[in-house]
Amino acid sequence: MSTVVLLACTGLGLGALYFLVASGLSLVFGLMDVLNFAHGALLSVGAYAAWWAATDGHLGFWLAVAFGTVVGTAASVLLELVLIRPLYARPRDQILATVGVGLALPALLMGIWGSDARPFPQPAALSGTVDLLGATVPVNRFVLVAAALAVLLLLRLFLARTRYGLIVRAGVEDRAMVTALGIDVRRAFTLVFAIGGAAASLGGALAGLYFGSVNPSQGTGLLVFAFVVVVMGGTGSVTGAAVASVGVGLVQQFANYAAVPGLGAAGLGDLSVVVLLAVLLLVKPRGLTGRLA
């Protein structure tokens, strides 16, 4: 029983991390058809900015996380304005440009701080454990879940209650029609890039807490699972991304635990996620919410 609780909590924590990456990815892709390969790099930027603020900058943990989020958001907006915007007439080139950035940014981080993982300072309050139903669960799992829930709530409020949220929801359905109502949809593009960058870099800063360290390829590794989440959840659907994130995180953790002889135990979780994706696509080729183009 205690193992199940621990696995569930860890899976939820991992799912929360996936959600932070995938929510922005899903919105950006749903609205703009841009598969942002630099999204993982944005996570790494947030992680390294937070790590730098917490060590060299001597900021407290939460201030460092805030700093990382701000830096990641700024990087994301810059990416949209400088690289994505001039390529609106060339959708495939937009994706290729993000591929280039996705290669260059982690390499730059590696050049500055080396390829080895850097230990992420853990505040005492968050490095302990909690006893839950007989299981000893690290506190940082709950921090991630709480952060993901907060982001989910804020995103839903934004989408449901604000004019820009309305524009984003409409744009996910039919971008051209939004402009045909006299709306400059490019502002919404910049905004979703900012939101996506903020969520991803917050995820990056908290990933430092979850994994105990930061390294330059962390973001790109998480990105692949975020893609899986986006496909499963349906592009442009924040709620779909949340459900798919939890599913992927839990499946991964439980499958990892169920070791199979001959196959290293740790690989099974990642593989099972891919199998899950393949099965889902065979059954429902358009994703869970049926909105994948």
Binding site: L83, L96, G100, G102, L103, A104, L105, A107, G111
Partner: peptide, 16 residues
Amino acid sequence: SQPLFLLGTLFVAVVY
């Protein structure tokens, strides 16, 4: 010192 950085940047430049 980072070939991938140079190649990534070059790639973006070619796309543009």
